[in-house]
Protein backbone atom coordinates (compact mmCIF):
# COMPACT_ATOMS: atom_id res chain seq x y z
CA UNK A 1 0.00 0.00 0.00
CA UNK A 2 1.32 3.42 -0.82
CA UNK A 3 1.45 6.13 1.81
CA UNK A 4 1.03 9.89 1.61
CA UNK A 5 3.84 12.35 1.57
CA UNK A 6 6.35 11.89 4.34
CA UNK A 7 7.24 14.97 6.29
CA UNK A 8 10.93 14.23 5.70
CA UNK A 9 10.47 14.49 1.94
CA UNK A 10 9.39 18.13 2.27
CA UNK A 11 12.82 19.61 2.85
CA UNK A 12 14.42 22.74 1.47
CA UNK A 13 14.49 21.31 -2.07
CA UNK A 14 10.72 20.96 -1.98
CA UNK A 15 10.35 24.55 -0.77
CA UNK A 16 12.56 25.96 -3.49
CA UNK A 17 10.82 23.89 -6.10
CA UNK A 18 7.43 25.19 -4.94
CA UNK A 19 8.59 28.80 -5.11
CA UNK A 20 9.99 28.20 -8.59
CA UNK A 21 6.69 26.53 -9.57
CA UNK A 22 4.70 29.55 -8.46
CA UNK A 23 7.13 31.92 -10.16
CA UNK A 24 7.01 30.01 -13.42
CA UNK A 25 3.24 29.99 -13.36
CA UNK A 26 3.07 33.73 -12.66
CA UNK A 27 5.50 34.55 -15.44
CA UNK A 28 3.52 32.48 -17.91
CA UNK A 29 0.23 34.11 -16.98
CA UNK A 30 1.73 37.59 -16.89
CA UNK A 31 3.03 37.33 -20.44
CA UNK A 32 0.00 35.48 -21.79
CA UNK A 33 -1.67 38.65 -23.08
CA UNK A 34 1.05 40.35 -25.07
CA UNK A 35 -0.71 43.70 -25.36
CA UNK A 36 -1.22 43.92 -21.61
CA UNK A 37 2.30 42.75 -20.84
CA UNK A 38 3.70 45.48 -23.07
CA UNK A 39 1.35 48.04 -21.56
CA UNK A 40 2.39 47.00 -18.07
CA UNK A 41 5.96 47.94 -18.92
CA UNK A 42 5.00 51.12 -20.73
CA UNK A 43 2.68 52.35 -17.98
CA UNK A 44 5.44 52.01 -15.40
CA UNK A 45 7.86 53.82 -17.66
CA UNK A 46 5.50 56.66 -18.54
CA UNK A 47 4.42 57.24 -14.94
CA UNK A 48 8.07 57.39 -14.01
CA UNK A 49 8.66 59.98 -16.74
CA UNK A 50 5.84 62.13 -15.36
CA UNK A 51 7.33 62.13 -11.87
CA UNK A 52 10.78 62.95 -13.19
CA UNK A 53 9.51 65.80 -15.37
CA UNK A 54 7.85 67.37 -12.34
CA UNK A 55 11.06 66.80 -10.45
CA UNK A 56 13.05 68.56 -13.13
CA UNK A 57 11.27 71.83 -12.35
CA UNK A 58 13.08 72.08 -9.07
CA UNK A 59 16.17 74.24 -9.30
CA UNK A 60 19.27 72.10 -9.38
CA UNK A 61 20.50 71.92 -5.82
CA UNK A 62 21.48 69.16 -3.44
CA UNK A 63 18.58 67.74 -1.54
CA UNK A 64 18.86 68.53 2.13
CA UNK A 65 21.15 66.23 4.12
CA UNK A 66 21.49 63.54 1.50
CA UNK A 67 23.62 65.68 -0.73
CA UNK A 68 22.59 64.32 -4.14
CA UNK A 69 20.21 66.10 -6.53
CA UNK A 70 16.45 65.66 -6.60
CA UNK A 71 16.60 63.25 -9.56
CA UNK A 72 18.75 60.83 -7.55
CA UNK A 73 16.61 61.37 -4.48
CA UNK A 74 13.40 60.59 -6.35
CA UNK A 75 14.83 57.62 -8.25
CA UNK A 76 15.92 55.92 -5.04
CA UNK A 77 12.56 56.69 -3.49
CA UNK A 78 10.56 55.20 -6.34
CA UNK A 79 12.82 52.17 -6.73
CA UNK A 80 12.90 51.21 -3.07
CA UNK A 81 9.25 52.02 -2.49
CA UNK A 82 8.15 49.72 -5.29
CA UNK A 83 9.73 46.79 -3.48
CA UNK A 84 8.33 47.79 -0.10
CA UNK A 85 4.86 48.44 -1.51
CA UNK A 86 4.95 44.98 -3.06
CA UNK A 87 5.86 43.43 0.26
CA UNK A 88 2.84 45.13 1.81
CA UNK A 89 0.41 44.45 -1.04
CA UNK A 90 1.62 41.04 -2.23
CA UNK A 91 0.00 38.77 0.38
CA UNK A 92 -3.40 40.51 0.19
CA UNK A 93 -3.42 40.60 -3.60
CA UNK A 94 -2.33 36.99 -3.85
CA UNK A 95 -4.90 35.80 -1.33
CA UNK A 96 -7.70 37.74 -3.00
CA UNK A 97 -6.74 36.33 -6.39
CA UNK A 98 -6.91 32.80 -4.97
CA UNK A 99 -10.24 33.50 -3.30
CA UNK A 100 -11.84 35.10 -6.35
CA UNK A 101 -10.69 32.28 -8.64
CA UNK A 102 -11.76 29.59 -6.18
CA UNK A 103 -8.22 28.33 -6.01
CA UNK A 104 -7.69 28.72 -2.31
CA UNK A 105 -9.20 25.42 -1.19
CA UNK A 106 -7.26 23.46 -3.77
CA UNK A 107 -3.99 25.11 -2.72
CA UNK A 108 -4.73 24.62 0.96
CA UNK A 109 -5.11 20.90 0.33
CA UNK A 110 -1.48 20.71 -0.70
CA UNK A 111 1.20 20.16 1.96
CA UNK A 112 2.78 23.61 1.65
CA UNK A 113 3.14 25.55 4.87
CA UNK A 114 1.50 28.91 5.39
CA UNK A 115 4.71 30.97 4.95
CA UNK A 116 5.50 29.08 1.77
CA UNK A 117 1.98 29.55 0.53
CA UNK A 118 2.16 33.31 1.11
CA UNK A 119 5.56 33.49 -0.56
CA UNK A 120 4.26 31.55 -3.51
CA UNK A 121 1.18 33.65 -4.13
CA UNK A 122 3.23 36.86 -3.76
CA UNK A 123 6.12 35.86 -5.99
CA UNK A 124 4.46 37.15 -9.14
CA UNK A 125 4.11 40.57 -7.55
CA UNK A 126 7.82 40.60 -6.77
CA UNK A 127 8.69 39.75 -10.36
CA UNK A 128 6.73 42.78 -11.52
CA UNK A 129 8.31 44.90 -8.80
CA UNK A 130 11.79 43.93 -9.93
CA UNK A 131 10.86 44.93 -13.44
CA UNK A 132 9.69 48.31 -12.16
CA UNK A 133 12.86 48.64 -10.13
CA UNK A 134 15.00 48.14 -13.23
CA UNK A 135 12.97 50.69 -15.18
CA UNK A 136 13.31 53.29 -12.43
CA UNK A 137 17.03 52.79 -11.92
CA UNK A 138 17.88 52.61 -15.62
CA UNK A 139 15.51 55.41 -16.56
CA UNK A 140 16.70 57.64 -13.77
CA UNK A 141 20.37 57.09 -14.56
CA UNK A 142 20.20 57.20 -18.35
CA UNK A 143 17.52 59.80 -18.97
CA UNK A 144 17.55 62.15 -15.99
CA UNK A 145 21.12 62.06 -14.76
CA UNK A 146 20.35 60.35 -11.49
CA UNK A 147 23.41 59.16 -9.58
CA UNK A 148 25.73 61.27 -11.78
CA UNK A 149 26.41 63.45 -8.74
CA UNK A 150 26.95 60.54 -6.40
CA UNK A 151 30.23 58.92 -5.48
CA UNK A 152 30.11 55.18 -6.02
CA UNK A 153 29.16 53.22 -2.88
CA UNK A 154 31.80 51.13 -1.16
CA UNK A 155 31.45 47.43 -0.52
CA UNK A 156 30.68 48.09 3.15
CA UNK A 157 28.00 50.63 2.38
CA UNK A 158 26.55 48.41 -0.33
CA UNK A 159 26.33 45.48 2.05
CA UNK A 160 24.76 47.73 4.69
CA UNK A 161 22.24 48.93 2.15
CA UNK A 162 21.29 45.33 1.38
CA UNK A 163 20.86 44.63 5.09
CA UNK A 164 18.62 47.68 5.45
CA UNK A 165 16.60 46.61 2.42
CA UNK A 166 16.22 43.12 3.86
CA UNK A 167 14.98 44.47 7.18
CA UNK A 168 12.63 46.88 5.43
CA UNK A 169 11.13 44.13 3.28
CA UNK A 170 10.72 41.92 6.35
CA UNK A 171 8.91 44.68 8.20
CA UNK A 172 6.74 45.42 5.20
CA UNK A 173 6.00 41.72 4.73
CA UNK A 174 4.75 41.59 8.30
CA UNK A 175 2.41 44.46 7.53
CA UNK A 176 1.41 42.65 4.35
CA UNK A 177 0.47 39.54 6.31
CA UNK A 178 -1.67 41.67 8.59
CA UNK A 179 -3.30 43.21 5.52
CA UNK A 180 -4.01 39.76 4.09
CA UNK A 181 -5.61 38.68 7.35
CA UNK A 182 -8.17 41.46 6.88
CA UNK A 183 -9.68 39.49 4.00
CA UNK A 184 -11.34 37.26 6.53
CA UNK A 185 -11.07 39.10 9.85
CA UNK A 186 -12.99 42.21 8.74
CA UNK A 187 -14.37 40.92 5.45
CA UNK A 188 -12.20 43.27 3.41
CA UNK A 189 -12.87 41.42 0.18
CA UNK A 190 -13.59 44.39 -2.04
CA UNK A 191 -9.99 44.89 -3.15
CA UNK A 192 -8.71 47.14 -0.35
CA UNK A 193 -8.15 46.78 3.38
CA UNK A 194 -7.63 49.07 6.37
CA UNK A 195 -4.01 48.06 7.02
CA UNK A 196 -2.84 49.02 3.56
CA UNK A 197 -4.97 52.16 3.66
CA UNK A 198 -3.02 53.41 6.63
CA UNK A 199 0.38 52.13 5.52
CA UNK A 200 0.12 53.20 1.87
CA UNK A 201 -1.27 56.61 2.79
CA UNK A 202 1.41 57.36 5.34
CA UNK A 203 4.21 55.94 3.25
CA UNK A 204 3.04 57.71 0.11
CA UNK A 205 2.43 61.08 1.66
CA UNK A 206 4.92 61.24 4.48
CA UNK A 207 7.66 58.63 4.33
CA UNK A 208 9.81 60.61 1.94
CA UNK A 209 9.26 58.61 -1.23
CA UNK A 210 8.60 61.61 -3.48
CA UNK A 211 9.98 64.56 -1.51
CA UNK A 212 12.01 65.10 1.64
CA UNK A 213 10.12 64.68 4.87
CA UNK A 214 11.11 68.20 5.88
CA UNK A 215 8.54 69.60 3.41
CA UNK A 216 5.75 68.35 5.65
CA UNK A 217 4.26 69.98 8.73
CA UNK A 218 5.69 68.70 12.03
CA UNK A 219 2.71 66.57 13.04
CA UNK A 220 2.79 64.74 9.70
CA UNK A 221 6.50 64.08 10.10
CA UNK A 222 5.77 62.40 13.42
CA UNK A 223 3.03 60.31 11.82
CA UNK A 224 5.54 59.21 9.21
CA UNK A 225 7.60 57.65 11.97
CA UNK A 226 4.88 55.01 12.38
CA UNK A 227 5.73 53.22 9.11
CA UNK A 228 8.96 51.32 8.35
CA UNK A 229 9.28 52.91 4.89
CA UNK A 230 10.34 56.19 6.48
CA UNK A 231 13.36 54.64 8.20
CA UNK A 232 14.25 52.49 5.22
CA UNK A 233 14.28 55.39 2.79
CA UNK A 234 16.26 57.61 5.15
CA UNK A 235 18.89 54.94 5.81
CA UNK A 236 19.18 53.84 2.19
CA UNK A 237 19.56 57.37 0.88
CA UNK A 238 22.29 58.03 3.42
CA UNK A 239 24.09 54.85 2.39
CA UNK A 240 23.64 55.17 -1.36
CA UNK A 241 23.62 58.89 -2.08
CA UNK A 242 25.46 60.77 0.62
CA UNK A 243 29.17 61.31 0.96
CA UNK A 244 30.50 59.27 3.89
CA UNK A 245 30.72 62.26 6.21
CA UNK A 246 27.07 63.06 5.68
CA UNK A 247 25.84 59.48 5.69
CA UNK A 248 25.89 59.16 9.45
CA UNK A 249 25.43 62.86 10.08
CA UNK A 250 22.56 65.24 10.53
CA UNK A 251 19.16 64.05 11.76
CA UNK A 252 16.26 64.18 9.32
CA UNK A 253 13.40 62.53 11.16
CA UNK A 254 11.79 63.82 14.37
CA UNK A 255 12.53 60.49 16.07
CA UNK A 256 16.27 61.07 15.61
CA UNK A 257 16.07 63.79 18.22
CA UNK A 258 15.04 61.22 20.83
CA UNK A 259 18.47 59.56 20.73
CA UNK A 260 20.96 62.32 19.89
CA UNK A 261 23.93 60.14 20.80
CA UNK A 262 23.19 57.56 18.14
CA UNK A 263 24.00 58.11 14.45
CA UNK A 264 20.65 58.58 12.69
CA UNK A 265 21.32 55.79 10.20
CA UNK A 266 22.06 53.35 13.02
CA UNK A 267 18.88 54.36 14.81
CA UNK A 268 16.96 53.78 11.59
CA UNK A 269 18.39 50.26 11.34
CA UNK A 270 17.62 49.42 14.97
CA UNK A 271 14.03 50.59 14.62
CA UNK A 272 13.65 48.65 11.38
CA UNK A 273 14.97 45.47 13.01
CA UNK A 274 12.54 45.76 15.92
CA UNK A 275 9.72 46.55 13.51
CA UNK A 276 10.55 43.54 11.35
CA UNK A 277 10.55 41.18 14.33
CA UNK A 278 7.24 42.41 15.71
CA UNK A 279 5.47 42.82 12.38
CA UNK A 280 6.41 39.39 11.06
CA UNK A 281 5.25 37.59 14.17
CA UNK A 282 2.14 39.65 14.58
CA UNK A 283 1.22 39.48 10.90
CA UNK A 284 1.62 35.72 10.72
CA UNK A 285 -0.48 35.25 13.85
CA UNK A 286 -3.23 37.48 12.46
CA UNK A 287 -3.22 35.64 9.13
CA UNK A 288 -3.47 32.27 10.85
CA UNK A 289 -6.38 33.58 12.85
CA UNK A 290 -8.04 34.88 9.69
CA UNK A 291 -7.67 31.57 7.86
CA UNK A 292 -8.92 29.65 10.90
CA UNK A 293 -11.96 31.89 11.01
CA UNK A 294 -12.52 31.24 7.31
CA UNK A 295 -12.31 27.50 7.86
CA UNK A 296 -14.78 27.79 10.71
CA UNK A 297 -17.31 29.76 8.69
CA UNK A 298 -16.77 27.98 5.37
CA UNK A 299 -15.48 31.12 3.65
CA UNK A 300 -12.30 29.73 2.10
CA UNK A 301 -14.01 29.71 -1.26
CA UNK A 302 -16.64 31.96 -2.78
CA UNK A 303 -18.97 28.95 -2.78
CA UNK A 304 -19.44 26.95 0.39
Amino acid sequence: MTGGLARSSLGWRYHWRCIWTFARRELRLWTYFRVNFTLDLLVVFTNFIIYMIIASFRPAAPTAVYGAGYASFLTVGLAVNTLMATAVAGPYTGLMDCWQNNRLETLMMSPISLPLFITGISVGQYARALMRLCIYLAGGALLFGAFADVAGPTLARGASALLVLGLALSACTGLGLAAASMVYLVDARGGSDPVRLVVDTLSGIAAGVYFPVQVLPGWLQWLACLVPQTYALDALRRLLLSPPAVALGAPTLPVHALAPGLPPALLDVLILAAYALLALRGGLALLKRGLDSARRDGRLSTWR
Binding site: G3, C18, R25, R28, R103, E105, T106, L107, S110
Partner: peptide, 30 residues
Protein backbone atom coordinates in the same frame (compact mmCIF):
# COMPACT_ATOMS: atom_id res chain seq x y z
CA UNK B 1 -0.25 15.10 3.65
CA UNK B 2 -2.30 11.93 3.41
CA UNK B 3 -5.56 12.90 1.72
CA UNK B 4 -6.67 13.84 -1.79
CA UNK B 5 -9.89 15.72 -2.42
CA UNK B 6 -11.64 15.46 -5.79
CA UNK B 7 -14.75 17.59 -6.25
CA UNK B 8 -17.04 18.45 -9.11
CA UNK B 9 -16.42 22.21 -9.27
CA UNK B 10 -12.66 22.23 -8.81
CA UNK B 11 -11.93 22.98 -12.46
CA UNK B 12 -12.22 26.71 -11.71
CA UNK B 13 -8.96 26.43 -9.83
CA UNK B 14 -7.06 25.64 -13.00
CA UNK B 15 -5.24 28.41 -14.77
CA UNK B 16 -6.89 29.11 -18.10
CA UNK B 17 -3.64 30.40 -19.55
CA UNK B 18 -1.53 27.32 -18.80
CA UNK B 19 -1.74 24.09 -20.75
CA UNK B 20 -3.14 20.89 -19.26
CA UNK B 21 0.40 19.63 -18.74
CA UNK B 22 1.54 22.87 -17.11
CA UNK B 23 -1.46 22.92 -14.80
CA UNK B 24 -0.81 19.36 -13.68
CA UNK B 25 2.91 20.05 -13.35
CA UNK B 26 2.06 22.93 -11.02
CA UNK B 27 0.09 20.65 -8.72
CA UNK B 28 2.63 17.85 -8.98
CA UNK B 29 5.27 20.25 -7.70
CA UNK B 30 3.04 21.48 -4.91
Amino acid sequence: LSVTMIGSGQWVAFDWGLSVRENLQFFADL
